[in-house]
Write a protein that binds this DNA or RNA. Structure first.
Length: 415
RNA sequence: GCGAAGGUAGCUCAGUUGGCAGAGUCCCAGGUUGUGGUUCUGGUUGUCGCGGGUUCGAGCCCCGUCCUUCGCCCCA
């Protein structure tokens, strides 16, 4: 038997009820903040990602699906959206036409990783990007949108972690000081962290190793390296969140995996997800437009792992629907009324009802059982009698009440 | 890339020291020819993940491999 590729999943009809529920909320919440959807191709020229995410990051180094196409171009299946979205905005000059641009997206992404709970090779992200404002107001809007979305899905058990990286200069100065410190406690670090010290030193702060956590406790803290403007920016973000009762926890140890962030960074975590406890995150990326050849454009955004979000919905039993209800099931006594039943069904579909005919033309009793299975609210019963008199018998499946009516009455019936 | 557990019917799983591959559920048919949700009766369903090996005989033991799950790494 041929199976789906490792780390990929089919979404079956029963899964999709939950997906549709979430996707509806994406539309609802983004609309309430005036965000418009943007879609980009699923693959890009490799440079879009290698130039933005960071050559040293694991994503670029070992997780991208990169291949040469028949024209010998290096192509990469998108591992995240922000770089692709910025590319599209630059290419179409969108930020020239709108000095402030609010966009959202939802779609599949690809990373070559070891599959695990909440981690697949093809996975889905939902996210928003607010382009054009350097102010804390934009950071706060994006965070509040994310928070509102999570709440609207019915999720309550989660934490919002907040940190700031300051400007590129403060981040680089901090990185230097941190490496210096880590060198001094090198003997107490795990093997992983000794390696990370060189590739992504900020990651060491986030280690789960007991020894690392102790060694890092006295490490220099980014907040001490911030210039006044960066501090003010961060304070403004917090002030807005405070005003609207958004709970957060400042955590100088949270770190994002992508190189392009500066100033505010944040992460949503939940303990119902096992080891992949982060289900969303984002931050400000003021330099990315320039890196990708566009005009300097301050920007902030976030992304959410949709599979992880849905795991959380499942764990709180949110949204258990297994199939959609239908309005009407047309039941015919035998095959000679089938064609008449079809006419009646089409008539009702014109009115906007969902109507089922038994295309297997099974026996009378079985059709009733089907009507139950599809949770039809009404059964239309058609025998020789009804057909000859241009009538139907309409039965309310919940009350059992039924009566014979003409087609005319049927088309005016309030279902 | 590293470490650990698992894979038996569509689904959830049982299967003893190696001896005819099972249960529940779902599905299908029927309960005397125009009424369902509950119920009763009967029935179908298998590459025991895949490939080798040991054995008279393998779902069970051995080796390899694929996939899933859990942890590390990394990230959403």
């Amino acid at each position: 038997m041929i199976k789906a590729v490792k780390g990929t999943k089919d979404l079956l009809p029963e899964d999709l009820f939950r997906w549709h529920f979430a996707e509806e909320k994406f539309r609802e919440v983004t609309r309430s903040y005036g965000y418009n959807e943007l879609r980009t191709p699923i693959f890009e020229n490799t440079g879009v990602f290698s130039r933005s995410i960071g050559e040293e990051s694991d994503i670029v180094n070992k997780e991208m699906y990169t291949f040469k196409d028949k024209g010998d171009e290096s192509i990469t299946l998108r591992p995240e959206m922000t770089a692709a979205l910025v590319r599209a905005c630059v290419e179409h000059n969108l930020t020239r036409e709108h000095s402030l641009l609010r966009l959202w997206y939802f779609g599949p992404f690809f990373r070559y990783e070891r599959p695990q709970k909440g981690r697949q090779r093809q996975f889905h992200q939902f996210g928003v990007e607010c382009l054009g404002s350097p102010l804390a107001s934009a950071d706060a809007e994006v965070i509040m949108l994310a928070d509102r979305l999570i709440k609207s899905l019915g999720v309550t058990q989660y934490k919002l972690l907040l940190n700031t990286l300051g400007t590129d200069e403060t981040r680089d100065a901090y990185r230097k000081a941190l490496i210096e410190y880590l060198e001094s406690v090198k003997d107490h670090l795990s093997e992983d962290s000794k390696r990370r010290m060189l590739t992504n030193p900020l990651r060491v702060l986030d280690s789960k190793e007991k020894n690392d956590i102790e060694a890092v406790a006295k490490a220099p803290i980014i907040l001490d390296f911030l210039d006044d403007a960066s501090k003010a920016h961060f304070e403004n973000v917090k002030a807005i969140l405070d005003k609207f009762g958004i709970n957060y926890e400042v955590n100088p140890f949270i770190v994002r995996g992508l190189d392009y962030y500066n100033h505010t960074i944040f992460e949503f975590r939940s303990d119902s997800l096992g080891s992949q406890d982060s289900f969303g995150g984002g931050g400000r990326y003021d330099k990315l437009f320039e890196q990708l050849g566009g005009a300097s454009t301050p920007a902030v955004g976030f992304a959410m792992g949709v599979e992880r979000l849905l795991i959380m919905l499942e764990s709180i039993n949110q949204f258990e629907l297994k199939s959609y209800d239908t309005d009407i099931y047309v039941i015919t006594y035998d095959d000679s009324q089938y064609s008449y039943g079809l006419e009646v069904a089409e008539l009702l579909r014109d009115k906007g009802c969902s109507v089922l005919n038994d295309v297997k033309q099974r026996k009378f009793k079985t059709q009733f059982k089907e009507a139950d299975k599809y949770k039809s609210r009404y059964a239309l019963i058609i025998g020789e009698d009804e057909m000859l008199n241009n009538q139907v018998t309409i039965k309310n499946m919940a009350t059992g009440e039924q009566n014979k009516i003409s087609l005319n009455e049927l088309t005016n019936y309030k279902f």
